[in-house]
């Protein structure tokens, strides 16, 4: 263990921890834009600058040493912090109202912390580069006028998924988050899992047609056999979002494109909402009683005529375990073991 002092608060942390880790431990806020606990540290935003033993360091990278004296609000650090945030704002889209991340944006948070004044901003030259919003992906957009080049999306795509559809491209003022050939996202190797969007600190990667859910329900994804833990976001009588469950041991918060975005079938107008009975070759609406009476009577007739083995039941790998259990109970109770599902498909 290493003991250090952060703004006179004594804190002991494990060797190899960073100043940022130590500050978090004692609940001391250090502003940052490019740091993400699940990803390798980058150190590019320079906003977490603090003074450690009289020298300016980035808290996210600097390892703690015994007896280290850290001053978060040292003047030198503050000057860099403020300048960086001001500079980033000169290149950032000013229209926050239409931004999905408004009031949930790290850049706003940090700007608020360092204290941005209109007088200062007026001295600086604004230069938002006109870049077309990449709307090619059906689920989320890339708006590079809101990108602060923190690289979180790039690291997410490489470290979390290994898809690595994104990288920094070009250099200097032209530096940008790019795909191969600077193509639109939908034409790249991106697998649309949306992990980058989940982690983007600003509105640069933002969900399309976002609707904030009223409540969330913990459940399990209904697609493949991996069984990812999810939070279903509900608004009224619709599912409007799916979020990975970070505490689930299977997916640890991760989701794929189907899991995260493929929920629309639940709300779809083509859903079957009443029983249907075939009359004169046409399926027509019927009441539950009509339908079930018909099924029961036809089953009975056929069993009576041809024995229970003239009946077969196909259960479903898509339904719950309980549904399957009840289904097998019914079919077997009717006297047949002609029972299967699509395990082999």
């Amino acid at each position: 263990m290493v003991t250090l002092y952060i703004d006179d608060i004594q804190v002991s942390v494990e060797k190899g921890s960073t100043i940022f880790d130590a500050a978090q431990k004692v609940g001391v806020y250090i502003p940052t834009l490019c740091h993400h606990p699940e990803l390798h540290t980058f150190g590019g935003c320079r906003v977490c600058m603090v003074e450690a033993n009289g020298k300016l360091v980035t808290a996210c990278r600097a390892p703690v040493t015994d007896g280290m004296v850290v001053r978060i609000d040292a003047e030198g650090a503050r000057k860099v912090q403020r300048m960086v945030v001001e500079l980033l704002l000169t290149k950032h889209n000013e229209d926050c109202q239409t931004c999905v991340k408004d009031s949930n944006c790290k850049l706003q948070e940090v700007a608020n912390y360092v204290g941005i004044t209109p007088e200062r901003m007026a001295m600086l030259r604004r230069s938002v580069t006109e870049v077309e919003i990449d709307e090619s992906n059906p689920f989320f957009n890339i708006d590079r006028t809101r990108c602060i080049l923190c690289g979180i999306c790039i690291r997410t795509c490489e470290e979390i998924n290994g898809v690595t559809a994104l990288d920094f491209g070009f250099r200097g003022e032209h530096t940008a988050v790019v795909t191969m050939g600077n193509k639109k996202l939908a034409e790249s190797t991106c697998e649309s899992c949306g992990e980058c969007m989940e982690r983007c600190p600003t509105g640069a990667l933002a969900r399309k047609n976002y609707e904030r859910p009223n409540r969330e329900v913990k459940s399990v994804c209904g697609y493949c056999g991996v069984g990812c833990g999810i939070h279903l976001g509900v608004r009224g009588d619709r599912v409007v979002s799916v979020r990975g469950d970070k505490d689930n041991p299977v997916n640890k918060g991760q989701l794929c494109v189907k899991g995260r975005f493929g929920y629309n079938f639940v709300n779809h107008p083509d859903r079957l909402t009443t029983p249907l009975i075939k009359r004169d070759g046409e399926l027509v609406e019927a009441s539950w009683d009509e339908a079930l009476d018909l099924v029961a009577s036809r089953f009975k007739e056929i069993i009576d005529e041809s024995g229970p083995n003239a009946l077969g039941g196909i259960s479903s790998a898509r339904c719950t375990t309980e549904d399957n259990y009840v289904f097998t109970r019914l079919i077997r109770s009717l006297g047949t073991n002609n029972l299967d599902h699509c395990a082999r498909l």
Binding site: L166, M180, S188, T189
Partner: peptide, 25 residues
């Protein structure tokens, strides 16, 4: 060309985006 860079990516087992990232640097 884009196809050339993609072919290089495949040959070197380097993600395409990174081949482009390096080239444009």
């Amino acid at each position: 060309t884009d196809p050339a860079m993609c072919a290089i990516a495949r040959f070197l087992r380097v993600p395409q985006s990174q081949v482009y990232g390096v080239s444009t640097f």
